[in-house]
């Protein structure tokens, strides 16, 4: 087995780590806004599935991946607007609303998909997003292969992590979101609409989850299946807590999940003598362990999962 652990092996592991971390990172980035405003959106799994389906359908019929991503984002925003309605306006229990949205999203997406495509022997496919080699940088040995030979969404995800950090720390909008999650009454008394900020934050979260869902069906893969999200929506929620609501730390958390997934796939491929069911568990196991160790320290936003009403004291 010694000849497995060559430079090529590590390069390919790291490259796929970055790629596999992308959907988790995108979803987590959006969920950071949502949770910072005090809402826990557990419906991300369903939202991502809906968007994966929508992205695929749009791309399939329009023959344009751009339309596909757009469709995914729009559906993501619609799903999360529904979540916002349930948790902010109706003031429903967020855990229940989110879980319901997940179940609904997964079921509804496969229902629509069946209506459109029926049952076919070979699943319909699209031409998925090709990788884009960054000029010059991609030719650096090892580094180039690891970092600069991915598709555009991958680069975008990591750039967004930085942008989101700036938005949260340096802009009035970011401050408003944080204040609404920490002390909605204070924000309200300063003339900030808690409802508006929470809707916005949840819908931004949906847009990110939507992009991430579309990434799964038309960039990472080239077809849709209702099980393709495979818990990534939930992992993203875990990563948000792991990252203590910081977009840059979310990058680290996603990469951790990414490397566990990459190793798992590679171990299966080279036939490591461990039953593949156990290997499949690896990324989830890593997530659970990471979460347990870190989350004890996590200071949740004070108004986390608490609906706000001006009249209650």
């Amino acid at each position: 087995m010694d000849n497995i652990f060559t430079a090529t092996f590590f390069v390919s592991i790291f490259a796929s780590t970055i790629r596999l971390a992308t959907p988790i990172l995108l979803t987590a980035l959006g969920e950071i806004y949502t949770q910072r405003s005090g809402i826990l959106n557990l419906g991300l799994e369903g939202t991502m599935t809906m968007s994966a389906m929508a992205g695929f359908v749009c791309a399939y019929f329009s023959k344009s991946l751009f339309i596909g991503f757009l469709g995914g984002i729009v559906i993501g925003m619609i799903c999360s607007a529904f979540m916002a309605f349930l948790s902010v306006t109706i003031r429903a229990n967020q855990v229940i609303a989110g879980t319901a949205l997940t179940i609904l999203g997964i079921g509804f997406s496969s229902f629509i998909y069946r209506i459109i495509f029926g049952i076919q022997k070979l699943p319909p496919q699209v031409e998925s997003l090709t990788k884009f080699d960054v000029p010059l940088l991609s030719r650096i040995p090892y580094i180039g292969t690891i970092f600069f030979q991915h598709n555009l969404i991958v680069y975008l995800a990591y750039i967004l992590a930085i942008i989101n950090w700036v938005v949260l720390e340096k802009t009035t909008f970011g401050l408003n979101v944080k204040a609404v999650g920490e002390h909605p009454r204070a924000a309200d008394s300063k003339g900030i609409s808690v409802t508006k900020i929470r809707y916005t934050a949840v819908i931004i979260g949906g847009a990110f989850a939507g992009l991430s869902g579309a990434f799964m069906s038309i960039a990472y893969m080239n077809s849709f299946s209702d099980t393709m999200i495979a818990g990534r929506g939930f992992i993203a929620v875990a990563v948000v807590v792991f990252a203590r609501w910081n977009p840059l730390r979310a990058m680290a958390g996603s990469l951790l999940f990414g490397i566990a997934s990459a190793l798992q796939i590679r171990f299966q491929a080279i036939g490591v003598p461990i039953p593949n069911q156990f290997l499949l568990m690896l990324p989830y196991l890593v997530t659970i362990i990471a979460l347990i160790t870190v989350s004890k320290k996590a200071e949740f936003p004070s108004a986390y999962t608490k609906p706000y009403s001006r009249m209650e004291r």
Binding site: T172, L175, N176, K178, A179, H183, K190, G191, S302
Partner: peptide, 16 residues
């Protein structure tokens, strides 16, 4: 009406 993890100046800037 102060958000505890934020700084004094952040709290004062809020809504302004």
């Amino acid at each position: 009406m102060l958000a505890r993890p934020l700084t004094v100046v952040e709290n004062i800037m809020l809504g302004r």
